[in-house]
Simulated scan of single mutants.
Amino acid sequence: MQDLAQDVLTWKNFYLSGRLQKPVRILVDNWDIRKVNKVNLKAATSAALLLSPSEFTEGDLYANICSLSYMGDLRMLFAEDKNKVKKIVQGSYELFRAMYKPLLQEYVAEGLLNCQHYSSQGVFKQDCGLSSTNYLFSSLPCIPQSQMAGGNLGSNGAGVATRPLISSRQEAANCVRRVLRRKVRASSVRQALSGFLAAGGSNAARYLAKKMSKSWKSRTLT
């Protein structure tokens, strides 16, 4: 549970935190992880907004949130359905809405988002100015922020760490992509190796062959 809470709050490995950014069924919870996870959901929303254009649909935003934990995943290159993110969002759309609607309403109230209509598929416009960009960037956990800032968050002269400032929206988006791809790539390699060792060579090979076949079909079907 300590490892879970640490990853949710800091994105140290961005594995468990990535899982909890999507709808899951929690079976055992001694730490009230749903409350802890609110920090993770807000950070995921901020990261997805930084990767979104000035106007987007609610579904587009959920797809961006869902895709965060697949950036840099080696399996997405050859062993996963290319439409995996789209299918996850379509199959769990109302669950995504239940998770993220309070945060979207909060950002609307703060003036970061403008909701054109909120029916079955809301359409949003966001403020892409530098002030809003730095606000969203500051909502990300400290570990990815530190890595985006080259490992140094700086100091205000009194020994208190300060948040790095971003000079443009494009810089912020590129930082998010670079750091998350690196984290997800490392996690996906560890998971693949663990699965291979746990299942054994022959079982792992058969599983991989099935995944690759499914991935190939998704890329050849129009």
Score class of each variant (00 low, 15 high):
169 R>T: 03
105 Q>S: 14
139 S>C: 15
87 K>A: 03
218 S>E: 09
156 N>R: 06
28 V>M: 09
100 Y>W: 13
210 K>Q: 15
140 L>H: 13
70 Y>S: 04
198 A>V: 14
155 S>V: 08
191 Q>R: 13
165 L>D: 11
90 Q>V: 04
114 N>L: 10
95 L>S: 07
54 S>N: 12
67 S>F: 12
17 S>E: 04
19 R>W: 01
4 L>D: 02
89 V>T: 09
210 K>S: 14
178 R>Y: 01
7 D>K: 10
3 D>M: 04
170 Q>V: 07
82 K>G: 00
100 Y>R: 10
63 A>F: 00
186 A>C: 00
49 L>Y: 08
14 F>P: 05
135 Y>L: 15
123 V>W: 04
4 L>N: 03
24 V>A: 14
66 C>V: 09
181 R>D: 01
120 S>V: 10
185 R>P: 00
70 Y>W: 02
28 V>I: 14
182 R>N: 02
152 N>L: 08
68 L>A: 14
160 V>N: 13
79 A>C: 10
177 R>C: 04
16 L>A: 06
96 F>W: 07
147 Q>D: 11
77 L>I: 00
6 Q>H: 09
62 Y>T: 03
19 R>E: 03
14 F>S: 07
183 K>P: 03
174 N>L: 01
67 S>T: 10
3 D>K: 05
170 Q>M: 07
77 L>H: 03
73 D>A: 12
98 A>I: 02
201 G>P: 04
10 T>E: 11
175 C>S: 13
93 Y>F: 15
105 Q>A: 12
45 T>G: 08
11 W>D: 04
144 P>R: 09
95 L>Y: 02
167 S>H: 10
192 A>F: 12
114 N>Y: 05
181 R>F: 01
87 K>P: 02
133 T>H: 09
51 L>C: 07
124 F>E: 09
75 R>V: 04
166 I>Q: 11
144 P>C: 04
205 A>S: 12
100 Y>H: 13
4 L>C: 03
47 A>W: 09
172 A>M: 06
202 S>Q: 05
114 N>G: 02
115 C>G: 00
179 V>W: 02
219 R>D: 01
193 L>R: 07
127 D>Q: 12
136 L>C: 13
165 L>H: 14
219 R>N: 07
82 K>T: 04
194 S>I: 08
161 A>G: 06
9 L>S: 15
187 S>L: 03
